[in-house]
Every structure is written in structure tokens, then in C-alpha cells.
């Protein structure tokens, strides 16, 4: 498994089409991992671009660490990853909390980032996640899996339940993730966000409770375009082809898109 050392932390990375001219880096969300992109979205993009995916610290197959889940540390990791992989400039796509990492990266290192995509980035002021962290229990996880499994087609037997429970217990009880996330609660209100000049695409699920966050970002970022697609917060898992098509359309104007119906975009590669 490919790992690279950044700040003495081992991050698991996957790279597709390393010879691609332009690079896209994909950032997953909190409590998730790079697999959210790996099977559909990343291969679609890799036909035209060099695509880099990585597991954030403490997530997936990256090293488990006790601290550094705030946006500054997360973007330190990303900067070091770009240095290590010799990426001078990249397009950036972030999902959920990863969307906030993408925004923070563009704020801190504007010259390193080309176009920017935020998928379902939540306003950290909502702090809904913190409530979940505070009330988390194994019973909660079982309840969640039983009631929301069909939106993500998540199947969890005994071993997976235990594995997920261990991950949550580690992140919630042995790391600073809660206080780190809480410290970001004013992120949408901070001035640098409204000074971003990057061409930005905001993709939200039309039934997601994060849509107001998308509206907020659209109003603050000068060159931002908000697109609603069918689905809820789990839209990259529910509609990977739609998300992949939206990304290709945004990054590569030479791709023809056939819009078959409102729900489905089919990509046709121009010769």
C-alpha cells in the first residue's frame, strides 16, 4: 500500500494516471476515507487528469494520530503531500469536512490551487457533528446503520460494526477531533472566505440539510456556482456518475455532455 511521510505522519495515497497533464486532488469527509471516490469518480476523472486521493490523518489506512484535525493542520498535511508528490498546482475537490479543507487550502495557498469544488461542505457553525460526538454510543451506531443504511447501501455485519465502532471510539475519545472541529465554527464568517478569487463549483444534494451552507458559500465566494443534484448529504455515494460528470464539465470544457434527463448526465469524450 502506498504511503508517504508528511510531518512524520504516514498518509495513505492512491494515484491514478500519474502522467496526466493537470492534477486533481480529491479530499474525503470526516469519518470516511478515500474509497468514497476510488471506484467511480476517480477513474472517470483519470481519463483526462492525474488524480491523487489520500486518507486524511486518523482516517482510512493513514496513521492514527491524536491531534491535528483542525483545518490548519489538515492543510499542512495537504501542502506537504503536494510537495512530496511534486505537484506545483492542482484542482481541488473536497467532500463534506474535506470541502472545508479545500476552501482553507485555497485561502492559505491561493497560488497552488487552480479550480475549486466543494461537495456538501457544511457550515461548521451548525455543529451538528459535535452533538453526535457528545452522544455517541454503540447503540447509536446500530440505530444509524439500521435506519439510514438504504441511502448509502451500507451493509454492516458484526465485524464491520465493530471496526466502525472502534474508529469512532478512537476519534471521539482519544483524539482532539471534537475541540478541533469546534474551533472552526466561525469559518464561514471569516473574511478570507469572501476574498477567494478561485473559480468555484459548489455541489449539494437537493434533499440535503446542508443546502443552506451551499447558499452561504455561493453568496460569499465571488466566482462560485451552486449546483443541486438529486440526493442528500451522501450524494457522492448515491450519484457518483452525476458528480463525476459535473466535475469533468467544470474542469474540462472540451468534454461534451449529453443531458439525457434531469437526473442523469452522460459524458461523451470529444475526439
Amino acid at each position: 500500500m502506498p504511503v508517504i511521510d508528511v510531518h512524520r505522519i504516514k498518509l495513505h495515497i492512491q494515484e491514478l494516471n500519474p502522467d496526466g497533464e493537470e492534477t486533481i486532488i480529491l479530499i474525503h469527509g470526516m469519518f470516511s476515507n478515500l474509497a468514497v471516490y476510488y471506484f467511480n469518480i476517480a477513474p472517470m476523472l483519470a481519463e483526462n487528469f492525474r488524480v491523487i486521493l489520500y486518507d486524511m490523518r486518523g482516517h482510512g489506512m493513514s496513521e492514527k494520530v491524536n491531534e491535528g484535525y483542525d483545518l490548519a493542520s489538515m492543510t499542512d498535511d495537504l501542502y506537504a503531500l503536494m510537495e512530496e508528490l511534486k505537484v506545483d498546482k492542482t484542482h481541488l475537490v473536497g467532500y463534506s469536512y474535506g470541502g472545508l479543507v479545500a476552501l482553507k487550502m485555497a485561502i492559505r495557498y491561493p497560488e497552488k490551487i487552480d479550480k475549486l469544488v466543494v461537495i456538501e461542505g457544511p457550515d461548521p457553525n451548525e455543529q451538528e457533528t459535535l452533538t453526535i460526538i457528545d452522544t455517541y454510543s454503540k447503540e447509536f451506531l446500530i440505530h444509524y446503520v439500521n435506519n439510514f443504511a438504504d441511502t448509502t447501501k451500507m451493509q454492516m455485519g458484526k465485524r464491520q460494526l465493530e471496526r466502525n465502532h472502534r474508529m469512532y471510539e478512537f476519534l471521539f475519545n482519544e483524539t482532539t477531533i471534537r475541540s478541533d472541529m469546534e474551533s472552526e465554527k466561525d469559518f464561514f464568517q471569516q473574511k478570507p472566505l469572501s476574498q477567494l478569487t478561485h473559480e468555484t463549483l459548489l455541489i449539494y444534494g437537493e434533499h440535503s440539510n446542508c443546502v443552506p451552507s451551499g447558499n452561504t458559500l455561493a453568496s460569499k465566494i465571488a466566482d462560485a456556482n451552486l449546483v443541486l443534484v438529486p440526493g442528500d448529504h451522501n450524494v457522492p455515494i448515491q450519484q457518483p456518475e452525476t458528480i463525476g460528470s459535473q466535475l469533468l464539465l467544470f474542469f474540462n470544457k472540451n468534454v461534451d455532455l449529453d443531458i439525457c434527463d434531469a437526473n442523469l448526465l452522460v459524458v461523451k469524450q470529444s475526439a
Binding site: 500500500m1 502506498p2 492512491q14 476515507n33 478515500l34 474509497a35 468514497v36 476510488y38 471506484f39 486518507d55 482510512g60 489506512m61 451493509q155 454492516m156 455485519g157 458484526k158 465485524r159 464491520q160 471496526r163
Partner: peptide
């Protein structure tokens, strides 16, 4: 009972 990140590791 393999989840997606385990399938990634397996694919690798």
C-alpha cells in the same frame, strides 16, 4: 464483510 477501503487495499 469487506468494506470499501478494504476492497481498495485488496485491489492494490
Amino acid at each position: 464483510e469487506m468494506d470499501s477501503i478494504e476492497i481498495v487495499a485488496f485491489s492494490e
